[in-house]
């Protein structure tokens, strides 16, 4: 008997692999800037993360008796790996990345049923698990002054990653971290920023360039229609709006909206994490609500929460709300309007 196949007998050019690869391509400028600022550390992060993530994916697919090849080549584990890698401080020891990959691929993704079934963004789960479990390692960022400035060759980097040499005094905090600590100490924004080499034109020196590169990648994805505009626009818009409000009220204690946009992981979150369709809202209206929620939560966590950046937490919280958002934002069916 012939196997019965239903129409349509033609298909558009889009494929899962293509979507995932576009996300990877969109990250290339950011990775380039990272490399320029942090040196080999970011590349070791990425390579290790890819090895661990694909490894875990293979093992779990094998244990689940599911096709391994298609799962590896759909590119989803690759995207998770790269996103996880660039949220971890460069030159982190290998086991940090191992645990992050484990949390992301095994716990957040495969234990829920693999691609398409994970309620939370795997890379963010991996990041948050690391942030909560290893706060010291996860907040020690190198000063973004270039590989030369840091004086780290590839060999030296590898020695640090695999634990034979300790990390030296060049590490420091991220701009958001500095602001948060400063405000806790009762300083005003101006006094914190003034005279601190961590800060540049828009936000942190170096960080602003990374964020610019991420923004370019995000805009490219919008142009290629890899992602739709609703989530990034709503998320960045709401973050900027609430930041402007508080900045206008009290510029002494609240950072400027530009600082909020360029200072932390706002662009990475808005373009690359919150747009993850699997864990986000699906409907057009739902995506706008999702984005607004993520933006506001980010600001709340940054300003009044315990962590310097709130992107990961806010997106995970919104992931939790996504099914409900989708349920209440179902579009009206053709012929049921009015």
């Amino acid at each position: 008997m012939k196997s019965l196949i239903s129409s349509p007998y033609t298909h558009g050019s889009s494929s899962l692999q293509q979507v995932m690869m576009q996300v990877v391509f969109a990250l290339i400028p950011a990775i380039g800037v990272y490399f320029a600022l942090f040196g080999w550390g970011i590349l070791t992060n990425i390579v290790l993360s890819i090895i661990f993530c694909l490894g875990f994916e293979t093992i779990i697919m094998w244990l689940r008796r599911r096709p391994i090849k298609s799962a590896l080549f759909d590119g989803s584990a690759l995207v998770t790996a790269i996103l996880l890698a660039i949220t971890i401080p460069p030159l982190s020891p290998w086991w940090i990345i191992f645990i992050g990959s484990l949390a992301a691929i095994v716990f957040a993704k495969q234990l829920y049923g693999g691609l398409g079934f994970n309620p939370f963004n795997p890379a963010m789960v991996g990041f948050v698990v690391l942030l909560i479990s290893f706060p010291k390692e996860m907040t020690q960022w190198l000063a973004p002054i270039g590989a030369e400035g840091n004086g780290m060759g590839l060999l030296h980097s590898l020695q640090i990653v695999f634990g034979s040499t300790g990390i030296d005094a060049l590490s420091g905090a991220t701009p958001l971290d500095v602001i948060k600590t400063g405000i806790r100490m009762g300083e005003t924004i101006n006094t914190i920023i003034a005279g601190n080499p961590t800060f540049g034109q828009l936000s942190g020196s170096g960080w602003e360039w990374i964020n610019l590169a991420i923004l370019i990648g995000g805009i490219w994805m919008l142009w290629r229609k890899t992602i739709r505009w609703q989530v990034p626009v709503a998320m960045l818009g709401s973050l900027a709006a609430i930041a402007s409000l508080f900045y206008l009220i009290d510029p002494e204690h609240y950072a400027s909206p530009l600082f909020h946009l360029f200072g932390g992981g706002a662009f990475l979150g808005a373009f690359f994490i919150a747009t993850d369709p699997v864990s986000g809202a699906t409907s057009t209206k739902g995506r706008i609500i999702f984005g607004i929620g993520a933006g506001l939560l980010t600001y709340i966590i940054r300003s009044w929460g315990g962590f310097p950046d709130g992107i990961a937490f806010s997106i995970l919280l919104m992931n939790m709300a996504a099914p409900m958002i989708d349920y209440y934002t179902q579009p009206k069916v053709f012929g049921q309007k009015g």
């Binding site: 599911r66 096709p67 693999g114």
Partner: peptide, 17 residues
């Protein structure tokens, strides 16, 4: 009746390694 779609390779339907 239309039969249930046959899962093709790559789908998480189990069994087909």
């Amino acid at each position: 009746k239309w039969p249930f779609p046959q899962p093709s390779a790559g789908l998480n339907e189990g069994g087909n390694l």
